[in-house]
């Protein structure tokens, strides 16, 4: 089955971010979304450790280790950037001030439940800001492969992994489709042009509902 690369998924998610939006991108894969902001749009990126308005990593040798993001990677500042302490930073999150949060996922349930912080009970647990980030943003979107490495659906009726948040996800960008979560169900908005609905349904762990036309999911070959 043809599927989008991570870069293509990130590109698609970036198309829905408005100019001037305040955006938090989760650590790892979601950080890629910043590379694909459409021409003429300048989102302002928030990082939990206390920076608004940061830019890409500095050149090697130019790092300042007091200037890092939530993933502890070195960053640069854009004009208009601001620093603040952690309580203000999470006030921006929970207080409904962010327009968009884009996160990774182990599983997303049809009611919007998200599991993205641990897969079991072994090892050292670590939650960071995951459970905070799912609350408050105007849109909480997930970007993910449509299935796990061994082919299991990541869009499911109910999460089996430990929950990060309840009923929090509003849209999922996958390697095969764009799916909204509305009234406790998955609503298919876009799918790859060559992909039959029944084949998409077969790799989705809950029913895909249709509400109006399904658009082709079109992305650049190499964004």
């Amino acid at each position: 089955m043809d599927k989008l690369t991570n870069a293509q998924i990130a590109w698609r998610a970036a198309q829905d971010i408005d100019d001037g939006a305040y955006v938090n991108l989760g650590i790892g894969f979601p950080e890629m979304v910043a590379q694909y902001a459409p021409e003429g749009r300048t989102p302002v990126y928030h990082t939990e450790n206390g920076v608004l308005g940061f830019g890409p990593a500095p050149a090697e040798g130019e790092e300042d280790w007091d200037l890092i993001n939530a993933g502890k990677k070195p960053i640069t500042l854009k004009p208009g950037a601001a620093f603040f302490h952690h309580a203000d930073s999470f006030a921006m999150v929970r207080g409904g001030h962010l327009d968009v949060a884009i996160l990774g996922a182990y599983q997303v349930a049809q009611n919007g439940d998200l599991a993205n912080w641990r897969v079991g009970t072994k090892g050292v647990p670590a939650v960071g800001g995951a459970m905070d980030l799912v609350h408050g943003a105007g849109r909480v979107a997930v970007i993910t492969d449509h299935v796990t490495k061994d082919g299991q659906p990541k869009l499911v009726e109910a999460c089996t992994f430990p929950l990060t948040g309840v009923g929090c996800v509003t849209r999922v960008y996958t390697s095969l489709a764009v799916v909204d979560i509305e009234d406790g169900r998955f609503v298919l908005r876009e799918k790859l042009a060559g992909l039959a609905l029944e084949d998409l349904q077969a790799v989705t762990g809950a029913r895909l509902h249709l509400d109006g036309p399904v658009a082709d999911l079109i992305v650049p070959e190499a964004p």
Binding site: H85, H86, A87, S89, F90, V93, R94, V127, G129, D132
Partner: peptide
């Protein structure tokens, strides 16, 4: 930390980051 925790030599109270900040 991992070694001490898995050996049971250190206790852990895990708190979400924003909750940790707000509790403080």
């Amino acid at each position: 930390f991992n070694t001490a925790y898995l050996a049971g030599e250190i206790a852990l109270e895990l708190v979400p980051q924003g909750t940790l900040a707000e509790r403080i």
